[in-house]
Amino acid sequence: MTQTPIIELKNLNKTFGTGEEAVVALDDINISIYPGEIFGIIGLSGAGKSTLVRCMNLLERPTAGSVIFDGTDITSLSDKALRNIRRSIGMIFQSFNLLMQRTALDNVCFPLEIAGVPKKEARSRARELLRTVGLGDKEKAYPAQLSGGQKQRVAIARALATNPKVILCDEATSALDPTTTQSILALLKELNQRLGVTIVIITHEMKVIEQICNRVAIIDKSHIEEMGPVDEVFRHPRTQAAKKMIFPSGDVVEEVTGYGKLLRLVFDGNAANRPIIANMVLKCGSPVNIVFADTKRIDDKIYGHMIVQLPENEEKVRQILTYLDMEEIAYEEEEYDVQ
């Protein structure tokens, strides 16, 4: 990409505490996020995701390294200048963090009040934003009267109020049910396309990344393990941490009994509308045991992975592998005792 990044983290390090109690939450993080993209950061609990995203608007001060927003290193700014920059970076949270004693409308007005926008103007802008997020009829409701999805919509409207260039989302859908998650993600995607706002999404759910992100970074134990376009990283995870994240099936494999080889088939969209497994079984004249499958259809293409247990007969195994090669399905052998 030839564009200049909107957010650039350089050699970022964050250590909590000192001496023996020191916890390294981030270690030498380098990330560039470009204008208009939806960038996902995925990792297990405690990996350092929240710390990472909080460093982007300096809610957390990095111990070392720089945070460059739109060309400015914000770690060296004065308090006042930093508060100004923060108006260009919206943020939404897992627990919504709305002001409980303010109505939906007044919540959306809050960042405008702080920015010194006249009350009347702020209210009309807030009304418009509530309509944008589909809550035009809830302006007088208090957060306690709204559902989780509705609260997150208010939070999104609030984050958009000051026309930010970036929206940071820390587990924004983790407290929501699957249907509501879908609708919130769809809303974020729509805002990204319509307003061109850059979105950074922190999550521990693969589905969230798959659904809306363009690029993804996998963080494990304070390190960025892998980074790249979502389909590339998800199709060919290189590191162990990434594989564990992307193919979370170790416990299933542990339960399999028998001696046949375990094979992981990776579907990356090339097996459109072809009954691969059924054809394989028919062609090779040998049944396989499907141990685990996590596939989904997007735009009429199949994505995901599947673990099958092959017959013990070596000749049959060879036939099956030949068939898979011919169909250009990626596969790799899987160990029995995956932890």
Binding site: R86, G90, L99, P111
Partner: peptide, 9 residues
């Protein structure tokens, strides 16, 4: 909630 307001400047 306090963090959210700090994040808004």
């Amino acid at each position: 909630v306090i963090e959210a307001s700090l994040s808004m400047g």
